[in-house]
Design a binder for these strands. Structure first.
Lengths: 243, 243
DNA sequence: CAGTGGTCTAGACCACAGC
DNA sequence: CTGTGGTCTAGACCACTGA
């Protein structure tokens, strides 16, 4: 008797063994179910996972096809910086560097499609691991979308931890890039001006309205690491190679 | 009547509406199925997706719990550079800069846990978009694992496209970081020495053996962008903000 | 030991898109 | 219009694990 895992593994085996070649069609669910001696639902579940893994494509009436090129996709867990630091066995410390309220800068208005009248809470925060600067957080919060952010102090915990409880199911656009440290970043992170820093920018929407924008600058040498593969069930880790 | 989508949406609604708070237990599948008027399997499918989305946790006998903090996870499609460039409407060009065969450098032996005797094919390739340098690829291929790589020319297409067909179901460790351009990178990518560049490093294993290691240097200003959210079904895009 | 989720079955109806 | 996958049902058995 076959479980959906056995079926999935067998199909991967037949594809990697070139029994079923890229682009070719594989038998339909009814035939597969017969040949594996299972119910169609079991085959369906196996196939659904193969679709999710980017190995096959399915179209009603047309059938199931081996992808010409398997999709390479990683699932990245975006860590809460506190957890990331503590999981690395370091002590976490948080410092609020700067806080103000005012209009959004023009580039941010454009980026978030905000009216120019909107008020934002601007925060700069530093997250430290064992006393060393780990991540610099430049944060803007739309006070029209999150009025409670006007009076919250943010002196004990960072806005990320607070916001994720306020807006747990937001739409997010995230981007990863590299940038040179300016004077502020260099000063806060204890690196030289011009050093290459890993940077994450994230903008968050709730019911179509921009809630917050954040730019995270990581310490020099930071890496975001993850594994993937046929068996690997999206175990993802963020580690830091320092020194 | 409710589909698994309706049930999933309703559960998210009840969590975000604070009917079910973080950490609390929600009713079991039988009760939920009764209350929604569906079969247990339908509720089960909805709950399975909520687990996958990082919104709830389930344990046999214990029950289903709202996560204290919802998991933030992105699914990133790692693009084939050719497709990425062509999808941006640019023309793709590939240049093989350098090719040699020899032992792995020491740092690579250590990193991949290779015996020091192993022979590697070393390639340097440049991928261009509309004639401008887009990505520099430094690639090492383990000839013990992939003997066919010894004689393949790699003068028309890059090793990535070739390898993905040779080893479609590998285990991969990928990391994202920032680094300063050295003389070689600056020369190939047409930037200044010291410029901050976005970098991907990827090592690939097949049946426990290291197959290849690659270091991808992206042009200055490159971003890897993705969206996620409750509705967003892992649409992922890599874009380039240039200039 | 008993309650929970995990999986499977045999069957059904349906949506969709090729033919 | 028909073959395919997508979903749902009612029921069953089982694995795990917490009480």
């Amino acid at each position: 008797m076959s479980s959906f895992r056995d079926i999935k593994a067998d199909i991967i085996r037949r594809i990697s063994g070139e029994e079923w070649t890229p682009g070719s069609r594989i038998p339909n669910e009814i035939d597969l179910a017969r040949s594996y001696g299972t119910a169609r639902a079991t085959v369906n579940r196996a196939m659904a996972e193969l679709v999710d893994d980017g190995i096959v494509e399915r179209r009603r009436k047309a059938g199931t096809f081996v992808r010409d090129v398997p999709l390479r996709q990683v699932r990245l867990s975006i860590p809460i910086v506190r957890s990331e630091i503590e999981q690395n066995g370091a002590s976490y410390r948080y410092v609020l560097l700067q806080s103000s309220i005012g209009p959004a800068p023009e580039w941010l208005q454009a980026r978030l499609a905000l009216p120019s009248t909107v008020e934002m809470r601007k925060l700069s925060c530093l997250h430290l691991a064992d006393g060393l600067p780990y991540q610099l957080e430049d944060r803007w919060i739309n006070l029209a979308a999150t009025p409670a952010a006007r009076s919250f102090a943010f002196d004990k915990t960072g806005p990320s931890e607070w916001l994720i409880r306020q807006i747990p199911f937001s739409e997010v656009e995230i981007s990863f890039s590299a940038a040179s440290a300016g004077p502020d970043e260099a000063h806060s992170l204890g690196c030289a001006v011009g050093d290459a820093l890993f940077r994450i920018e994230r903008q968050t929407y709730w019911t179509g309205q921009a809630v917050t924008f954040v730019r995270l600058w990581f310490h020099r040498g930071y890496r975001l690491t993850s594994r993937y593969g046929p068996g690997t069930d999206t175990q993802s880790a963020a580690r830091t190679g320092r020194g």
